[in-house]
């Protein structure tokens, strides 16, 4: 649920990066953090284990300029990808305005991707959303690695709603901002049309 503050003239939206463990959700946020002008972003918070696996969430606030005199602010969150952190994932989806599904392109991770897509649908439903309506962008990450599935295969397996899909390599930044931009556009268009 977006938050419009007429007093401070701000529109706030929440974006959640979802996907299986080690698919690159945190890496997406780290790249955005590194590349954004420091004036346009806040501090990145990572609640992670000692081995740098996301324990609860990563959080990165961004400001993207003004529309119609209103500052636009986007709060980016990641979920913990590991299967057993499902309770935390559900909590982080609360109030979400748009989701990036970060898929791991490696052939060996296809089962994990499918499981995570299904888990996303379930958890969105549990939070009262229609999983077919929530703004969603698919990011096919790790395109630089060997033994990866083709985009057509990934599409057939994961992109059941036929939403925008972007190939990425989050470690080098390829596709990272394109994904963010596509998601923000979907969210603002969705809000404009009256949303869900």
């Amino acid at each position: 649920m977006s938050f419009i503050n007429y007093s401070s003239k701000e529109i706030n939206c929440k974006i959640v990066y979802y996907g299986p463990g080690l698919c690159g959700k945190t890496t997406n946020l780290q790249y955005i953090y590194k590349r954004m002008n420091p004036d346009a972003r806040g501090k990145m918070i990572s609640l992670a284990t000692e081995t740098e696996r996301t324990l609860f969430f990563d959080f990165l606030p961004l400001s993207l300029g003004e529309v119609r005199g209103f500052k636009t602010r986007f709060h980016l969150y990641t979920v913990p990808g590991q299967v057993f952190y499902d309770a935390s994932r559900r909590l982080i989806l609360r109030g979400v305005d748009g989701v990036v599904f970060c898929a791991d392109s490696q052939l060996t991770r296809m089962d994990a991707n499918v499981e995570s897509v299904e888990n996303l649908r379930l958890n969105l439903e549990e939070q009262g959303y229609n999983p077919d309506k929530v703004p969603l962008v698919m990011q096919y990450n790790k395109r630089d690695l060997p033994n990866i599935a083709s985009v057509a295969e990934l599409h057939a397996l994961l992109n059941l709603r036929n939403v925008p899909e972007i190939e990425a390599c989050a470690t080098t930044g390829i596709g990272v901002f394109e994904t963010l931009k596509a998601t923000i556009k979907l969210i603002l268009n969705d809000l404009r049309k009256g949303g869900r």
Binding site: I4, Y6, I11, G65, V67, T72, K181, I184, N189, R192
Partner: peptide, 18 residues
Amino acid sequence: EDEGVIEELTEEDIESLF
């Protein structure tokens, strides 16, 4: 009624952010 800032956004407004 909501003052409609979101509903009145145009494609162009959204593009201008980028």
